[in-house]
Amino acid sequence: MKNGPLFFFGLFVALTLSWAGTVLLSNHQLGALTPFYDENESASFPLRQPGVAARGQLVYADLGCASCHTQQVRRPDFGSDLARGWGERQSVARDYIFQARVQLGTSRVGPDLTNLGARKPAYDAEDLMKFLYTGMIPGTKVVTHPPCTYLFDERAIVGETSKLALNLTGGFTPAAGCQIVPTEGAQSLVAFLLSLNNTYDYPESRPMPVEKAKPEAAKK
């Protein structure tokens, strides 16, 4: 450590090694990942995000949704991801190649959202809007999500009621002559959430752990 330049060089090498070992190597493996062309369907997957969904992803990032929600279905032997109906297969790197800012997330205070657009029964935009406004899952009375009322405008009804206005009941009914209308942010966010739909089965998303599956099957 007495040799200053050598010490400095050591520091640089330490950082570069780990960068090369994790980022550069994985870039070598995944950086050139292309969409998968399916000849039977004459289409390539994943599909590109519609523009409004790409804008919605920015709203998702700005509000920090990733602090409570993940966007990844883990491998079949990991947790209850598949059993909870978050997807029919594990997420693979190819699912994300068109996303400008990938937010896999690190916390599951709330459910995973990877395939929100493919849930059964399906959510529609109206349901999600109401959920964001009230914080209550449709059909329940408990607030489980912070109500994002700032994504909505309360406006006076001039002429006809807006087509987008929320049809709210109970304690949330707006005052007479008023309506609750989603802002552009809310519309893009919901469009993004509904665009999350990675159901196409890539060749690499199917490698079930064969050796592992056999003894389990034998037990059953």
Binding site: G10, L11, A14, L15, L17, S18, W19, G21, T22, V23, S26, Q29, L30, Q72, R74, R75, F78, G79, Q90, S91, V92, A93, D95, Y96, L104, T106
Partner: peptide, 22 residues
């Protein structure tokens, strides 16, 4: 000291267990 600097940088994939990465 060198263990922390050299090995520490490689713990980056720590939270990606089971995720959509190699």
């Amino acid at each position: 000291f060198w263990c922390l600097l050299v090995v520490g940088g490689f713990t980056g994939g720590r939270h990606l267990v089971g995720g959509p990465v190699p």
